[in-house]
Amino acid sequence: MSKKLKNMSDTNLLLSITIVVFFAMYLGAMIFQGAGFLKAQTFFNILNAQASLIILSCGMSLVMITGGIDISVGGVTALVSMCCAVYLDYQSGNVFVAVLIALLIGLTFGLVQGFLVAYLEIQPFIVSLAGMFFARGMTTIVNSNPFNVQNEAFVALKGTRIIIPGLGSVNKLGKYVNAYVEIGVIVALLVVILMFIILKWTKLGRSFYAVGGNSQSALMLGINVKRTKFLSHLICGFLAGVGGFVYFLHVGSGSASHASGAEMNAIASSIIGGTMLTGGVGNIIGTFFGVLSLSTIQNIVSSAGLDEPWWIGITIAAMLCLFLVVQSIVMTVRKKQTVQ
């Protein structure tokens, strides 16, 4: 067993810790809290609510694997929501154009931040901090009042539910209710699968790991380090645009306070999912489970009757702390083993 553990790569070790913790947590919730957690729809509701966070976290993990960080994703989400909301409602626009607007905003942020980080070698934290400030401020400048979108085509799209056969449940009135997911979840799953394939089996994907692990040796291997860093930020920006639209599709309104703290949740999910901040280690599947763990613990806390507002913040922080310390200890122990 211990030999097997030793031979496991860092990425796989951290990934398995995450998955085990998630299933243990969910099983525990099922056993001790019963009722709600036994329904499949509870799980799908978590997916529905967190679809955008899953997409944002995928982008975040990619940047973190490459050794950077992007804290502007929450701001971009708010900006995308607001711009799309204003376009759809005030200009009575087309939903497809709204999608294009969302992607364009995301790409622009990725482009500028990627350029500043990769080619001007400015610290990613500072660049994306400014990006976050800018996005949040611009959201207020575009429109300062929160409002719901009434656009018919959009409302129809928002209400679209994809029924999952066989997993429904009988409600209190004795009526059978189908289990469903929203369109956003499909998008999120597609993004997870696509990102997993890119990171695992393409040359570009492997170069992200190489640059994050040791940019000096990556350079000697003939990898274009600057371009790789640039691309990671570009993709993260693009995914922030996608995630922003999915978020918008879920909430259906524009507000300057939307997705506040989303960047921190995305970072937390990536860390819980086994992505190391130092770069070079990480896995998209882990990130996916990281988001699920994060929202499961929120659900457990609120359904356990600890509904005072502070408990959620404190438990998430405690969980983050635990994972960071475990990661740090695991890595130190393994480093010592390799030296021996």
Binding site: L120, A130, F133, F134, R136, M138, T140
Partner: peptide, 24 residues
């Protein structure tokens, strides 16, 4: 507006860090 303040600050910050970046 106090909520719009960050957008202007961001521009100043970016201008500043770009100007002080060693490469630039």
């Amino acid at each position: 507006q106090s909520d719009a303040l960050p957008a202007y600050k961001a521009i100043v910050v970016i201008a500043l860090v770009v100007l002080s970046a060693p490469i630039v």
